[in-house]
Write a protein that binds this DNA or RNA. Sequence first.
RNA 1: GGCGCAUUCGUCUAGAGGCCCAGGACGCAUCCCUUUCAAGGAUGAGAUCGGGGGUUCGAAUCCCCCAUGCGCUACCA
Length: 424
Amino acid sequence: MSNDRADISGPVRVRFAPSPTGFLHVGGVRTAMFSWLTARHYGGQFILRIEDTDQKRYVEGAEEDLKASLRWAGIEWDEGPDVGGPHAPYRQSERLPLYNQYAHQLVEMGCAYKSWSSAEELDVERKAAAANHQPPPLRDRWRIATPEQIAAAEAEGKPYTIRLKMPEEGSTSFYDFVKNETITFENSRVDDTVLLKSDGYPTYHLAVVIDDNAMGITHVMRAEEWIASTPKHIRLYECLGWPLPMFAHVPNILRPDGRGKLSKRDGDVKTNEFWEKGYLPEAMFNFLVLQGWSYDEKTELMSQAEIVERFSLTRIQPSPARWDINKLNWMNGHYINHILTVDDLTRRALPFMHKAGLLTEVEALPGDDEYLYFQAIIALLKDRIKVLSEVPDLTGYFFVDHLKYDRALLLGKDKNAISVAQAS
RNA sequence: GGCGCAUUCGUCUAGAGGCCCAGGACGCAUCCCUUUCAAGGAUGAGAUCGGGGGUUCGAAUCCCCCAUGCGCUACCA
């Protein structure tokens, strides 16, 4: 039986397109990782695009946090808001005229229509439907407005939205690389989603299609909650006569109790908290890639370079994983104790000592006596460090009252000065 | 309510018709090492592969139904 999963061939351009509405959580990092890995493994480009089309939810500083989180995790981009590129700008709020132009073009083509329905009245309709256990209306009444009604509304000059006009007939299908199957939707079940809001900003649906096309995105990778809106996007590609990209919907990471996808309200999910606590980016990368992807039946510990080489889009699991940091803690300790060199570990632990006031930056420069003292302590205690933030507590008693032992005495009982020197 | 996706040890996973009365890892337990705590080593418990029907000589793997979970159903992404 032919059950071979299609794999990628040809050029590859993948993007990660977060919206700056808060800190980046680990689930977002993982989606970015899969996209980045796809670009790197298949020899393509990775693009970062900021989808800041919701003025109400915009959070100051979120873009910086998100870029810092990505970079910490070892994910860099070839094109993006700060590094530039041939398709700049990479921030959607700076591309507004483009969306506006296409939205109106779609209206002229008969693929979309203007609506003067207010958000309030639509809300009333939806609530009434819900109260009757009926599905909310898929179409807006302006879809079937007469030319006279439209002319009258235009003359009034009131704000309007532009909505997609989904066909009533037929169905839309697409192959999904991760699900490894063709997913089909009846067009009559897909709603006439808003493309352009009354404030002139595009919705995700319009902006994502226009930008993915403009930026030459070949593989649309995103979280799986977008599966249901993919037929809308495909409709847009068809109306505009643009070539369809391939789709790959990555499963979500669920909350620890399995109830719902990870959200920013959950604890232990902020990426920046992980580096503040002293998790290593290598361990985080390794752990995160294993949440939904595997190389084979045994290999788990892999460097980023090995993962890039071994990655395959078709080995991403279609089912969601629960967020559980148990194994991350083990892996972090393993990297600290067995993969990092003592010197590397020492350097990384130093900032935590500075923060705790146990060593100042000037008195513990690499190579200094104070540094070597600390390094000897690290060599002695590294096998019990799980996260770097524990280091001050673990080593504090070596610094009480500026007490300083002779470095030569800081030896494990089964060790001698030579073995310690060699280990560092 | 409608539509879509998912379902293998507590958790992450291997598995693409016979290699599987299901393998690995984390966690857990016991033992070894050890003055202690870790780390390390060894052993073990732990999944009738969500349930039920098919197809087949043979199914965790293919098909159907059901259940459950998740997602979407916003002028949020």
